[in-house]
Computed example of a mutant assay.
Amino acid sequence: MMVRRDTLARACMLDHPPTAYLVPVKRPDGVAEYEVTWDDLARDAAWTQERLQALGLERGHCALVSFSGHEGAWFQPVIEALRNLGATYGTAEAMGWDHARTRVFHRELDLHAVLGLSTDTLEALSGQVMIGDLFRDTPVILVRPGAAERLRAAGVRAGIIAPLGPALAIECAERSGAHVNRSEWHVSERDGVLAVAAVREKRATGLDEIVLDTAGRVLTERCACGSDDPRVVLG
């Protein structure tokens, strides 16, 4: 134990590069990479914390976060936000084969929030339980767009949390579109699909506007929740 503590203490003193992730982005002319720095992640975590706090998450609450390893650029800020709030969290893969972990957390913890569930996970769960009964009483349900559609059909008032190109979109309690941090990202429409561009003085992506293959529209007026962040309505 002493050796491990010494090793960790020494590691904390080392310099590390500013880049945390290089994430591939599909563009009409091929695949490009954008850079996510540790400073980017810290700002993303602060914004995500505000969004989760507005939904009622606080110290002592329990949450499940479902994501895959390659999604760290989007979900590491979610985890950091939960830590900063003092919430207890567990993680599960956003794959159907890991659905049992979701069942265990649901059974063993009094979950206040379920974040990031995928359609694959719901598909696997629906073969064993009624998903409406499983999640209807959970106060905060933020899942992928396809999973949200399925849960809403089952009577669960699910919202959306999802990568939007390099950005993260999080729906508020109004359920009138998923918010995107306006301090970090410009969001627009291009012929019925969404496009995202970094706020230049904030992020060093090295990319111009990224036109996505995601259909949707952008709402720019102030949300009833009080936020001035733009909202995307997918589909």
Rank of each mutant, 00 (worst) to 15 (best):
L57G: 04
L57H: 02
L57N: 05
L57F: 01
E58W: 00
E58T: 14
E58K: 15
E58V: 10
R59E: 15
R59N: 07
R59M: 13
G60Q: 07
G60M: 07
G60Y: 04
G60D: 08
H61T: 12
C62V: 08
C62A: 15
A63H: 03
A63D: 05
A63C: 10
A63G: 01
A63R: 04
S66T: 06
S66Q: 02
S66C: 12
S66M: 03
F67K: 04
F67N: 03
F67R: 09
F67C: 13
S68M: 10
S68R: 12
G69R: 13
G69F: 07
G69M: 12
G69E: 11
G69L: 14
G69Q: 14
H70W: 14
H70C: 11
E71V: 13
E71W: 13
G72Q: 04
G72N: 08
G72K: 05
A73F: 10
A73E: 03
A73L: 10
A73K: 03
A73Y: 11
W74P: 00
F75V: 11
F75A: 03
F75S: 07
F75Q: 06
F75C: 11
F75D: 05
Q76H: 09
Q76W: 11
Q76P: 04
Q76M: 12
P77L: 11
V78Y: 09
V78W: 10
V78M: 07
V78T: 06
I79W: 00
I79M: 08
I79S: 00
E80K: 14
E80H: 10
E80W: 15
A81T: 15
A81I: 08
A81R: 01
A81G: 06
A81F: 08
L82A: 01
L82G: 02
L82I: 02
L82Q: 04
R83I: 09
N84T: 09
N84M: 07
N84H: 06
L85A: 06
L85P: 02
G86P: 03
A87N: 03
T88Q: 03
T88I: 03
Y89C: 09
Y89M: 12
G90L: 13
T91I: 14
T91Y: 03
A92G: 05
A92M: 06
A92V: 05
E93Q: 12
E93P: 01
A94E: 05
A94T: 12
A94K: 08
A94V: 04
A94C: 13
M95T: 14
G96Q: 07
G96W: 05
G96P: 11
W97S: 15
W97C: 14
W97K: 13
W97Q: 15
W97Y: 14
D98H: 13
D98S: 15
H99E: 09
H99W: 12
A100F: 08
A100I: 13
A100Q: 13
R101P: 04
R101V: 13
R101Q: 15
R103I: 13
R103P: 01
R103W: 13
V104F: 00
V104K: 01
F105Q: 06
F105W: 15
F105E: 03
E108Y: 06
E108G: 01
L109W: 10
L109I: 04
L109V: 14
L109H: 06
L109F: 11
D110H: 10
D110Y: 06
L111N: 00
L111M: 01
L111D: 07
L111H: 02
H112Y: 09
H112R: 14
H112P: 01
H112A: 13
A113D: 05
A113N: 00
A113C: 02
A113V: 04
